[in-house]
Design a protein around this nucleic acid. Structure first.
Lengths: 345, 345
DNA sequence: TATCAACACGAAACCGTTTTCGTTGTTAAC
DNA sequence: GTTAACAACGAAAACGGTTTCGTGTTGATA
């Protein structure tokens, strides 16, 4: 077993000083050609690579970025993560991933763990609990320390920092409008409890579209489900008791579940009921019938977030200019598939 | 903006030495009660937290573990990752996640990046390309450096280290047997090209089950698809030209796709054709009909892998005993759903 | 009063780098 | 024959901690 070799060992072995070795490896012209070659040959032979930790300590930058997401087993977050990882990779950054599990406390703990030197900046989507409590002191502290932070998807107006979101309101408006134009009159909305800012915005888009097309808002057409808990009973009761000809869902899981219940009740999709869901993941593509959905372009979102973060990190190194924060908006796209394709009657 | 405070600053401010501050914060009995209290109060006021990088350099351990997976947007790997992250979290470790994208080169580069001090150990599933090339020199080097390594799922016999796998052979055997016992005679297998060791093992289990039940192996019943590339044409041709009453698929995506094609051809599931897939993910649960599948227990796999790794890391600290490597086998479970539930005829 | 332990603290080494600032020895210029 | 310039290298500080090993001051003891 050969432990990694250090500058000191090379220096001792070759009977030169540590500084000479360091300089030789960087092709400094201070060092003679002879010595340089000798040192480089030796270093190569022993696979010398500088120790990242020592470099981090010296340079005060780790080339690590911290990503905290509420849930990794969730298609949307996974794609965002992938975008982040891909972009970070091209820039020579590593990604430390933490999962908050929708818990405020885990979010805080994870942030504290990483904030003490392990990373150069954060990319984060707020946990459900954090959004509910509206307690953002941990984020404020991070910002106050001068550590770059980018919020994505689950953002909060109270936190002043760079953000990446999709145009939830407009996308939802557009989807609802599409259903209306297809002749649907009784359009249901299946959403989460309202503390999630994205669900709220999507609901707003739905309201506005109804209003603009002179359809009245019927509270009976709205089903609010707990975010993760699978409340099949509630959904079944909803479908049994409600007359509708279209459904808009704030995520694809809700949509696919709802489709199955409707089909179980003998409804034809899209003839009797049309469906549209947010999150264009594998579920939408492989559902039966294939689900029309709103692509959130998670991967692109991740890329943009990573780009914003890394730019800020590397700009911080230069000069401390006036702080300015941007919010990037990714345009959602409606992907039409079988669940809406046929015009009604 | 308040940058993080250091021991040195506290020492200067309180006019004591750095060592005194360090000791006081650790409640060393060397330091008087007065001084200790004063220092602790000051430290608390300024939210002092030791710098992780400095600690890592000193202690030669980072409390980071590196995870390299072929693809994060893949339900199975995602669940494994989650298991790793959860367990690591309880032990105070962070997880640095890299995606090899099934590429040998990215796998090597990622490993080299992390191996220079950034982490204390690796958890890794081989990329498809690595398995194809059978080039494991990068893993050998890591092992040679004395860095703990745990391979999971996509493992290789040539690499001597700790491993976590599922009993692919037995699970496949069991699933095939189940189909046979249900009266199925012509059981198809949809698998990947054979360089993936897991697919190979699953195919072997399938062969063995057929043989043990006096069913002959018909090559026409086997469809080999490229791992990621979606070859709809090939699948459609397969279903159009082949008579079968059951299908075993090496992953749930293949299974759900296949079900849709079969349904498109007017087949009833499970009456005409039964389906079983590997990977019990959300797709299986929400497919229509719900897919009977083999749960690989990714989360548990991740936990076990993380446990093995962390134990090795922390044991390394103590004494250098004789190296011994284990292979943990996670038992797969068959989850029966609608796609197989009815007995044939 | 000399001796000694206990107490409370500081100096310095160390982890592995980078980098600034000497310090040599040689050579060219005057 | 001085001096200045330069080439080639080393010493040391710095990054932010931990830890070992002094050391000076007390108070108690013989």
């Amino acid at each position: 077993m050969k432990k990694k070799i250090t500058l000191k060992q090379i220096a001792r072995e070759l009977e030169v000083s540590i500084s000479t070795v360091s300089k030789a490896l960087k092709n400094s012209k201070e060092i003679s050609k002879d010595t340089t070659e000798k040192i480089q040959a030796f270093a190569k032979l022993y696979h010398y690579k500088p120790n990242n930790i020592a470099l981090s300590l010296k340079n005060k930058r780790t080339r690590n970025i911290g990503v905290i997401i509420p849930d990794i087993v969730h298609h949307f977050f996974t794609t965002v993560f992938r975008g982040i990882e891909q972009y970070a990779d091209t820039k020579g950054y590593n990604v430390i991933a933490c999962v908050s599990d929708e818990s405020f406390e885990k979010e805080v703990i994870n942030m504290e763990m990483l904030a003490n030197g392990s990373i150069d900046g954060f990319i984060l989507a707020l946990s459900a609990e954090t959004q509910q409590k509206k307690d953002f002191h941990h984020l404020m502290e991070i910002i106050d320390q001068g550590m770059p932070l980018v919020l994505f998807d689950r953002v909060a107006d109270e936190v002043v920092c760079d953000k990446v979101v999709i145009n939830d309101f407009e996308a939802s408006y557009m989807a609802t409008k599409k259903l209306i134009e297809n002749g649907r009159k009784r359009i249901a909305l299946i959403t989460t409890e309202s503390y999630l800012n994205v669900s709220e915005k999507r609901a707003q888009g739905y309201y506005k579209a109804l209003k603009d097309h002179d359809l009245e808002l019927d509270e009976n057409l709205i089903l609010r489900l707990p975010y993760q808990f699978e409340d099949e009973k509630k959904s079944e009761a909803f479908f049994a008791s409600t007359i509708m000809d279209a459904v808009l869902c704030v995520n694809e899981i809700f949509a696919v579940r709802a489709m199955r219940i409707a089909q179980g009740n003998g409804k034809k999709i899209p003839e009797d009921i049309a469906f549209i869901g947010f999150t264009d993941g594998i579920l939408s593509k492989l559902a039966n019938p294939a689900l029309t959905s709103i692509a959130q372009h998670g991967e692109q979102m991740g890329k943009v977030a990573a780009k914003m973060l890394i730019e800020k990190i590397e700009r911080d190194d230069e000069i401390q200019q006036v702080e300015s924060f941007k919010t990037a908006v990714i345009e959602a796209t409606l992907i039409e598939r079988e669940s809406t394709i046929n015009q009604i009657k």
